[in-house]
Amino acid sequence: MLTYVIRRILIAIPVLLGITIINFVIINLAPGNPVDMYMTPDTPPELLELRKEQLGLNDPIIVQYIKWLGQLLSGNLGYSFSTSESVGSIIGERLGQTMLLGFCALLLGLLIALPIGIMSAVKQNSKFDYVMTGLSFVGTSIPQFFLGLVCIYIFAVNLGWLPVGGTETLGGGGGIGDRILHIVLPAVALAVGIAGRKVRYIRASMLDVLKQDYLRTARAKGVREFFVTNKHALRNALIPVITVVGMEIPLLFGGAVIVEQLFQWPGIGQLTIQSIMSRDYSTIMGLNLVAAIIVLSANLLTDIFYSVADPRIKYH
């Protein structure tokens, strides 16, 4: 097991390096550069040159990359081209918000999906099953930004129950209740897709387990149907569901970009758009690296968790 984990981490290193190289190349293909963004007709060209020199933009790409990598090894993600703040601390500030939103969305999604998935499997081919399976498709097919807009339209604008965006009411002081109210809509916009995907997984997984002989044994022993489903079956059905929860992590990042932009949620998704608009290369590089590390660790953790949960799985 330990060698397996070490091997996976060792494999991840070249993967991460590759990601940074590709990012670096793509970014440097860009026609504009951050200094030009601030150029006004009356900026003296010498000043621009000086600024470029300071940022190391005149070096060849390889030199720039090696410099960046060197910094990285000493734990420094560099400094934002546009605000000169440390990229590490900018991302740090924003990452918490994205993780909070992602966690809430995942939790909400599973809370919706679990009972529906189980019920659908238990009552296979019932009306409930058909309607829910159909709805789960709607959940996966509705674009997050459209769902978000509809939610805003109904709950924020027309009913006025929930705020339109942001993390708290301007001026603060709303306390925890206010923050919860703010997270509901963006979390729902992300959670519906998750729930849609998970309902079908849980249903299929549960159906698989319900066919097993050990459930028939449990019934034959006289275990009540409620316990058969919820204790004997559910436990075994949840194992495959764990893996697909891990698969949601990269999707959550994608969703975050759109939902955070829509709800003005100050997470790394919104930061990505801002950095792209201002051609803030160093922040973009940092963002991509952090996101890739999170995705890779999520994959690894899922696999480890899977093997712990299911004693039959052996890695070597």
């Binding site: 991840a12 993967v15 991460l16 990601i19 990012n23 793509i26 970014i27 293909l29 860009a30 026609p31 990269p250 990042f253 994608g254 969703g255 970009v257 759109i258 990505t272 758009i273 792209i276 973009i284 963002l287 991509n288 996101a291 890739a292 999170i294 995705v295 890779l296 994959n299």
Partner: peptide, 15 residues
């Protein structure tokens, strides 16, 4: 597959 691809797509498209 480890690329947070929405982010990278945004970068590539803008480039």
């Amino acid at each position: 597959m480890a690329f947070p691809y929405m982010m990278v797509i945004l970068v590539v498209v803008s480039v």
